[in-house]
């Protein structure tokens, strides 16, 4: 089980390195442990996240790809779908059975035909378009809805801070 999971992760790593999607760099922290990755995601253009680079940690379960990884940002990300501790909450990271609210369609959720690349692309578009229905950070969600200026100011501030400026 474990070795088939590592093999699959290694294959995905190879794919992501040979043909990286725009604005995404991802790979294992060290090849000794294929179950812990670090990814960099560029903030999508035309959004307050533009210009930023957001590091995130991906932790894969031993039964990957049956179960999805967990993803956590390693810098402050002020976003309705990111918990204050950095954990990302989007449908592709949830297994099909695990949806108490029934707002997500099965096709959007995790299945073994998804991949790290698809997760990272989904997260990138999540940055651009928050999903207001399932806020992980209620305060950020409210601000995004009611005080968009302030929300964007905080996001831009975090971007600058994360670049050490």
């Amino acid at each position: 089980m474990t070795s088939s999971a590592s093999k699959r992760l290694f294959k995905e790593y190879k794919g992501l390195s040979s043909d990286p999607p725009e604005g995404i760099t991802a790979g294992p922290v060290t090849e000794d442990d294929m179950f812990l990755w670090e990814a960099l995601i560029q903030g999508p253009e035309g959004t307050p996240f533009e210009g930023g680079v957001f590091p995130a940690e991906l932790k894969f379960p031993k039964d990957y790809p049956l179960a999805p990884p967990k993803m956590k940002f390693l810098v402050d990300v002020w976003h309705p779908n990111v918990y204050p501790n950095g954990e990302v909450c989007i449908s592709i990271l949830h297994p099909p059975g695990d949806d108490p609210m029934h707002y997500e369609q099965a096709s959007e959720r995790w299945s073994p035909i998804q991949s790290v690349e698809k997760i990272l692309i989904s997260v990138m578009s999540m940055l651009a378009e928050p999903n207001d229905e399932s806020p992980a950070n209620v305060d950020a969600a409210r601000m995004w809805r009611e005080k968009r200026d302030e929300y964007e100011r905080i996001v831009r501030g975090n971007v600058k801070k994360s670049l050490g400026l």
């Binding site: 790979g27 670090e38 960099l40 210009g51 680079v53 600058k160 670049l163």
Partner: peptide, 19 residues
């Protein structure tokens, strides 16, 4: 490993320069 490292660094430094 070092290629990956390099790509990470370049991505960050490029973002920083741009900013």
């Amino acid at each position: 490993q070092s290629n990956l490292q390099k790509r990470r660094e370049e991505m960050i430094l490029a973002a920083r320069r741009k900013m």
